[in-house]
Each structure stands twice: as C-alpha cells, then as structure tokens.
Design a protein around this nucleic acid. Structure first.
Lengths: 239, 239
DNA sequence: GATCTGAAAATTGTATACAATTAGGCGTAC
DNA sequence: GTACGCCTAATTGTATACAATTTTCAGATC
C-alpha cells in the first residue's frame, strides 16, 4: 500500500513523496487527453482515486497549476486547462525565442564539453537513420523529437534555458501529436533536424536559426490549422 | 500582524490566503539581502515568525523554491539560494533571448492595441525626463528599469512571454542594484532605453535587437565583474 | 413564471497530531 | 586517538479535524 514511486530525475530537490507520483500520473493522463478539457478536479475526488490524504493532493494540484496543466477556479477547485488558439500561439512564440537562441549559442560557441559533442553526433545518427529507415509511428516520433530539442538545449550547458524550454514543451505535448500525425511530417522533420545539425556543425548561426525557425513554424502551422478546423467543425455542428 | 497583502496582478487564480503574503514577505527580504546566502529556513522557524501553522508555510516554501529564491536541502529543510557566477550568466542568457524576441516582435508587428501603444510613448516620456532630470537614486531607478522591461513584454500581448520574463527578472533583482549603483549607469540606461524605443517606433527589428542586447549585456558585465571582484576579495581574505 | 431568501452542501484554507526518516552527538570498544 | 554503533533530537511527510467561505438548490413570495 502507498508505494513511494521513486522519480527518475530526482537529482534536484524538487519532488518528494506522494505528491510527485500524483503529479506524474495526472500529467500523463492530461497529456493523453484522458480527461475532457475543463474537467473538474476536486481535492476530495483525487484523494479517493489515489487513496491518500489531502496534503499531497493539494501539493500536486498546486504544482500542476504552475506547470499550466490545470487552472484554479476560485472556490470551486481546479479544472483541466483548455488552451485556446491564442495561448497555443503564445507558447510557440516563447518556444521559438528560446530554441532560436539555443541553436545560435551552439553554432557560435559550440557544446561546452566532449560529452555534449557526442550527444550531437548521436542525434545526427538517429535522424539520418530515421530518414531512410522505417519506424515512423507518431508516438515514437514524438519521443525522439522531444529528445532532439532537449538535447540541443542541454548541449548549451545552460540549465536554466533547458528548464524553461521544458516547461514550455511539456505543455505543447498536448498538441504535438496533432502535428506529428500529419502525412509526410516524419520526413520533413528528419530533413529539418539534420539541416539544423549541419549548420551548427558548420558554425553558421544565421542558417542554424533559420532552419530551426522553419522546423518550429511548420509545427505551429500544423497545429494552428488543425485546431481551427476542429473549432470550425464543432461550431458548425452546433448550428 | 498577518496582513493579507493583495497582489497587484491577482487576475489569475494563483495566490490565496496566508501563503501568498508569506511568499511576498520572504521574497522581499531575500531580494534585499536580509538573509545571508545559504541561510537555513525551517518550517518550524517560519511558523513562529509568521504566527501561522505549517500548512501555509509549506506552501510558501514550495513556491519560493520553484521561483528560485530558496532551494530544498533533502531532509534538512530549505535554504536561501546563493547564485554562483555561472547561474547568474545563465539567467542573463535566457533573459537576453526573451527580451531580444520581445523587441523584435514589437518592431515587426507593433503593439496589438492602442493601450499598449500609449504605454510605449509613456515610457519614452519617462526616460526622456530621466535623462535630463535629477532623481537618480538606484532604488527608484531599479523600479523604473523593471517597469520598462515588463512594459515592453506586456506590449507584445503575449502573456506567456511576460510571465517567463518575470520569473527570470525577479531572480536577477538580487543583482540589479549592483548594476544600477554603478557610476554613470543611470545615464547610459536612459540612452539605451530611448534608443530601443526609437528603433521599435521605426520598425527596425535589427537595430532594436542590437540596442536591447547592448542594454542587457552592459548590466550583465557590470554584475559579472562586481561578483568576480567580490569573490576574489573574499578568497584573498581567507589566505 | 420569475425572483428573492435561506439553509444545506461542497470546497477550500488552516491548524494540529502522528509517523517516518535522517542528522548529529555521545559513549564505548579497540 | 580513532572508529563504530546506538540513541536522541530535528525535520519533513502524511493524515485528519476544524473553520470559513461560497455555491447551489429548494421553497416561499410576488
């Protein structure tokens, strides 16, 4: 009973005890759309489902709120946050600013140590293989895509940059599948990623930024049109 | 005692009750260096000083930890976070990325509505006045400088961008006074800010970025040298 | 039928009690 | 003198009880 799930990345002093596993579980569920948007989450309900008291549940909800997965309804508990088109665009903009800086940084001064340099060549191997290879399931692609962008940020050596990028990209997880499910997206992603790596290796900051911008913008546009279509459809159904 | 400080930007559902005022008070104290770095903060102690129970104190400490003002010592409570040179540089880098994007955004598409446009001309008035005028106390300068950068971010209309920039700049508050106390910094700040506004008005994104970069870099360098000197002095004293 | 009123239910905010883990120190053996 | 082990105190993690606020809904009134 009451198993303490030890979190993977427990190096920093952040998570502790039951709340961290509640956070992880709920995040996972929300990202996979297992709750309808605006679904209400009350402390009492979560206590029942997780078989714990209110203390860790409260902590978990507060964390999820600051991470942008739930929002607080004054005096009415919490609800799964639904992002509207404008907010999604905002997230993509901040992501763009941070990732452009990331590649500029890498092109200009390169990875700070041998380990990070190896990570970059490993990325090149991975995505070259993916370009020719077969496995193009969206789920796996999403994992590798996340890994790609996080590895770049990590290679700058700037942990603060990585952390901010993570919180942004974690939220965008909600929509990443929409993007990567698109036809031919796998191939264009491969080409764009390889291009980014090429320009970094060539120490061409301008071209690296441009390539990264194309990569992120394509994703943003895919999500944008998909959401707008969905909204239009939902609206037309109501009339 | 136990005054509930109503937060300015309370529009979102974040703060509530006692914890928010504890957070505000401790933040204020930490920013003003009223605790030595690495000073330990235990829940029990804070309960006594604030005359509240552990629940709100725990909540406050968790918030302060995610905001980067305290760090968690596993099983030993919390401690006021001491930033080393590398971490400060990281913060300045992320800030640079976000603020460069901010001015680029403003120069390219301009403020989204009349209200934000007015804010920008108000900034121009303020800093023109400051250039000629007298009041150059560092404390007041810091307030206006913060207002300048936050107003720009706000004028983009991107709330997410503003929020991330705030969390970064809030931490850099710890070192802003070091920067602004420097001789002639007031004047150079005025000139740089006015230049930024000029290029934004002229819709010249490249020059606006360059001007913002100079502004931020100057601050970074001031802080960098000051901290390095302080560390060198502390080290030489020990030998 | 619409609207106001009041009480009950729902829900969070706070306080406190208990459990579990860990750090620090003291004493003892070698 | 040093190292080992136990014991106590410190400290957090969790559960629960209580208080205060707000929503909601039934019933009465116009």
């Amino acid at each position: 009973m009451k198993v303490m799930i030890r979190n993977d990345r427990m190096a920093d002093g952040e998570p502790s005890g039951l709340s961290s596993s509640i956070v992880a579980t709920l995040k996972e569920q929300i990202i996979h759309w297992q709750y309808p948007p605006e679904h209400r989450l009350t402390e009492a309900d979560l206590c029942k489902t997780f078989h714990v008291s209110r203390s860790p549940v409260r902590e978990a909800l507060r964390i999820l709120a600051t991470d942008g997965f739930v929002k607080k309804l004054p005096n009415r508990g919490y609800a799964v946050k639904q992002y509207n088109l404008g907010e999604i665009e905002e997230l993509y903009e901040v992501r763009l600013a941070l990732e452009l800086y990331t590649v500029e940084c890498l092109a200009k001064r390169g990875p700070p140590n041998a380990h990070d340099r190896e990570d970059l060549v490993a990325l090149k191997r991975t995505w070259t293989g993916l370009l020719n290879g077969s496995s193009k399931k969206a789920e796996e692609l999403a994992r590798l895509d996340t890994l790609f962008h996080e590895t770049l940020a990590h290679a700058t050596g700037n942990k603060t940059l990585l952390r901010h990028l993570r919180t942004i990209n974690e939220r965008l997880m909600l929509f990443r599948m929409i993007d990567l499910d698109k036809t031919d997206r796998a191939e264009s992603t491969c080409r764009q990623h390889l291009e980014i790596l090429k320009h970094i290796a060539a120490k061409d900051a301008r071209k690296a930024r441009a390539a990264m911008q194309r990569n992120i913008e394509e994703g943003r546009i895919n999500v944008h049109t998909a959401i707008k279509d969905a909204l239009a459809k939902a609206y037309s159904m109501k009339t």
